[in-house]
Design a protein around this nucleic acid. Structure first.
Lengths: 362, 362
DNA sequence: TTGTATGCGTTATCAG
DNA sequence: CTGATAACGCATACAA
């Protein structure tokens, strides 16, 4: 902060008023004379006065900041889905005069970060990203008394904490059903890391749909890794150059789906025609033609769609609401993904499944 | 902050020492007795004491935070290259006890953000992203007296400010030379937004290399947009379904390059064999097989490579250095991109350029 | 409607 | 080596 920074005292001297009156005028207190307020506001603007953030925090006990801890994925990678979530949350914070604090940190040190946030009073609340099944952060945050909202869930109990999640189980069981209805019997799953609760749920949805039809699940068709492009490429090559490849693939993100498509291209297999694909589409902005534009022509990929950026917005609103009114209990929101039919899914016409056999199941 | 937060006064009472001594012990002042210090440190750890961030800021005048303003690109999109830069910067901040403040903001309001940062004392310095040619933020930040480092440059003068940049002009002229040496005469450029200085420089490199060989540049082969996947797809379809397509393409990022490859796949054109491609590779983590692993087999794409995450690390170090020692003048770093030959470039064998004609130019 | 006085939790100055 | 005391800049209970 520059040495010549103007503060409340100086401003009040210039105006010939007390600090109290000036403070009240600027903070919108009703009791101050409108004429006085106008003078104060004008002078503040003219002198470019803004209250010191640390002084205000110290006096009020509020930091006006929300903490986000970016967990580094395997290989020290930052999850790209995370970026769009942040973009959404950031919009909301900006709108309400809140600051976004970001900490990039490796998994093991993560609990320290929350302790630090809490005891140093740097933030008024935190958003929990990438919750694991039975995530230890939840009891920790509860014990710290730090307000938090989880993007995703950690358990099946509904939990005594606020969360917003996509109905991943339903999305993946619906997608599996859809493929099965098209006659597919060998359906692969290119999943995210199943330590993450969302990926665990996606597999549950996949498996329950298979089970409901009496289809056996083949472990050779199920994968669980960080959702990056080369992952999709690698496992696709593995499956489609090996024996007994699948006729359809579920993919947990459009990133590995791109790798899958790339591999198929090299192998001369056409998405839709030769292999059906359904991917989960988080509406990542850098893959969208018109930013967030939803209304567009029939997309290339058939997808389960839910905007992660919109989730970021809503989670940000939730944490701000919770801070403003702590007495209201935990809130939960479960969003349904939209199934958008594109050109990457078609009836199964695998030669080794004779038409008569396939027809039987219709 | 919880009501039962332990503060310096409470801690000093517990220890039977003055606040001064406790503070000094914890802050590593040399004059305090080592035995006393050990006692203090132990008690602080046991009681989980950490100094209040806002109180410390108020007392020292330092915020221990660096501001990053995320400019929303066209269509309200957050630039994905940005995320990896942040990841790198965040590592350094964490290491030095600094906080990263993120503001997502639309272009027009951006100057307000810097004024706010400066006058409210929220940050000790800022990192300027996506500098435009003649960017108005530089004079503004100078006048505000807020330390800053620019990722990229705004002008040719070298500038009276600190920056770190890739030698974009050289990278693109080298890449153009490389393609020309392979016999390519119609070379397209899928560039970023040329209001951005880096993209402007890339085009300069491309054009200067063409000019040096007396190759004419065809405006129908040059594009300038946000570097997203569908952009590469769209302009590739446009070029390769139209008359007189290029035989080689320079792409400003692997994102539009993926779109390009997708389009070529649909059109039955093989990268390398039918169309040569060189892309700028920022080492985006979600596209890397092993995170940041550099040593790998011959890559699919021929690329100009420079890790944007490594740039983030270095820029963060630079801003911290500048804050620690403001008397040292502006620092500049110009990084050379590495040209990595992959499988997407090959000698031109376009039928309409007869071998004899091509041979003449050698 | 405005002003006075005090506290927020540190760090820094000066004394011992 | 340690301690009392004064900033730091704002918000607010209380007084007028």
């Amino acid at each position: 902060m520059a040495r010549d920074t103007i503060n409340l005292r100086r401003l009040s001297e210039v105006l010939g008023l007390s600090q109290t009156t000036v403070s009240r005028a600027l903070n919108g207190f009703p009791e101050v004379n409108e004429k006085t307020r106008a003078r104060v506001v004008e002078a503040a603007r003219r002198l470019n006065y803004r209250p010191s953030a640390s002084a205000a925090s110290l006096a009020t006990g509020r930091a006006c900041a929300i903490g986000h801890v970016v967990p580094l994925a395997e290989h020290m990678m930052i999850n790209p889905h995370f970026c769009d979530f942040l973009a959404g949350a950031g919009e909301v914070y900006a709108q309400f005069g809140y600051e976004m604090l970001l900490r990039v940190v490796a998994q093991p040190q993560e609990t320290d970060v929350y302790r630090d946030f809490a005891s140093r009073g740097r933030v008024d609340g935190v958003v929990v990203h990438g919750p694991l099944t039975g995530d230890p952060r939840i009891p920790l945050l509860k014990s710290l008394g730090l307000p938090f909202v989880v993007h995703g869930r950690c358990d099946d109990g509904g939990g005594d904490y606020s969360w917003l999640d996509v109905n991943n189980r339903r999305a993946f069981s619906r997608a599996t059903d859809f493929l099965a209805d098209l006659g597919h019997r060998r359906i692969a799953l290119i999943n995210g890391l199943e330590a993450m609760n969302f990926a665990y749920r996606r597999r549950q949805g996949y498996e329950s749909a298979l089970a409901a039809r009496g289809l056996e699940r083949d472990p050779a068709l199920v994968f669980s890794e960080d959702m990056v492009e080369p992952y999709g490429y690698r496992v696709a090559r593995q499956m489609f150059t090996g024996p007994n490849p699948p006729t359809a693939v579920l993919v947990s993100s459009v990133l590995p789906a791109m790798g899958l498509v790339r591999a198929l291209g090299e192998l001369g297999l056409r998405p839709g025609a030769d292999v059906s694909i359904i991917a989960f589409d988080d509406c990542l902005s850098f893959l969208q033609p018109g930013g967030e534009a939803k209304a567009r022509e029939v997309p290339f990929l058939t997808v389960m769609r839910s905007s992660i950026r919109e989730a970021g917005r809503r989670v940000a609103e939730m944490i701000l609401e919770q801070i403003a009114a702590p007495e209201t209990g935990p809130r939960h929101e479960l969003w349904e993904a939209e199934l958008v039919i594109g050109r990457s899914t078609a009836p199964c016409r695998r030669q080794r499944a004779p038409l008569s056999a396939a027809a039987k199941s219709w």
